[in-house]
């Protein structure tokens, strides 16, 4: 990200943010509620357009070729982004088909197994708890093995065992040369050995620490 600014009316939510996430790294952004973390991640996920600045994901200009850039991205945002009247299997299969994956049903089974969702695959999302919905959202985010995983406060609503699974996924992504960018307000999460850590205050990003 280069000099990314986002304004909503007169309010500047992001102010000339520069951020580079290295391949195979786990980068954490900490910050209070309303500091601009989620907006930054939504822009990185091409869900929101910046007012100014450039974004490149794995060499793809995300503003000019957003569909190609999204192939490189998996994202878990605040809301689970799932259709309540579809089952877990149908939600995941829809996304796998949109990603044009070969054998989408096999990928659905694989990620469901990874997130321990196999037993509930044919249940509708409407009947799931918040934690389960989050798990499905995580499963969807990794179904196409993206190079960049964007996690916006993923710890919210997850129990201990689900958190551990998620941390294993983060570690796996890092070890395979893929990247993870996580926004969190949990200091506990931010201390789990990130390669780079930043704090965001009033739309400005400051380097916090680096291991």
């Amino acid at each position: 990200m280069n000099a990314v600014t986002k304004r909503f009316g007169a309010a500047t939510v992001l102010d000339k943010v520069d951020l580079a996430v290295a391949a195979g790294s786990f980068t954490v952004i900490r910050g209070a509620n309303g500091s601009g973390k989620s907006t930054l991640l939504r822009i990185a996920a091409t869900l929101t357009s910046p007012s100014e600045g450039q974004i490149s994901i794995n060499g793809v200009d995300a503003l000019r070729h957003s569909a190609d850039a999204r192939r490189e991205i998996g994202a878990v945002m605040h809301s689970p982004m799932l259709y309540s009247d579809l089952t877990i299997r149908e939600n995941l299969a829809l996304f796998a088909t949109l990603c044009q994956l070969e054998k989408p049903q096999d990928r659905v089974e694989a990620v469901a197994s990874r997130l321990r969702l196999e037993a509930r695959l044919d249940e509708r999302v409407r009947g799931l708890s918040h934690g389960y919905r989050k798990r499905v959202a995580i499963a969807r985010s990794i179904i196409h093995t993206p190079n960049l995983l964007l996690l916006d406060e993923p710890e919210t609503g997850l129990d201990e065992s689900s958190l551990e699974v998620m941390l294993q996924i983060v570690e796996e992504w890092r070890s395979r040369g893929r990247s993870v960018l996580m926004a969190t307000h949990s200091s506990d999460f931010a201390t789990r050995a990130p390669d780079a850590a930043y704090t965001m205050t009033a739309g400005r990003l400051e380097h916090f620490e680096s291991s």
Partner: peptide
């Protein structure tokens, strides 16, 4: 209303397909 519940439309926006 189906698209708004759980911000489900976001899944379509995250998909690597042309709008």
């Amino acid at each position: 209303s189906h698209e708004l519940e759980n911000d489900a439309v976001g899944a379509l926006m995250l998909a690597p397909v042309s709008r």
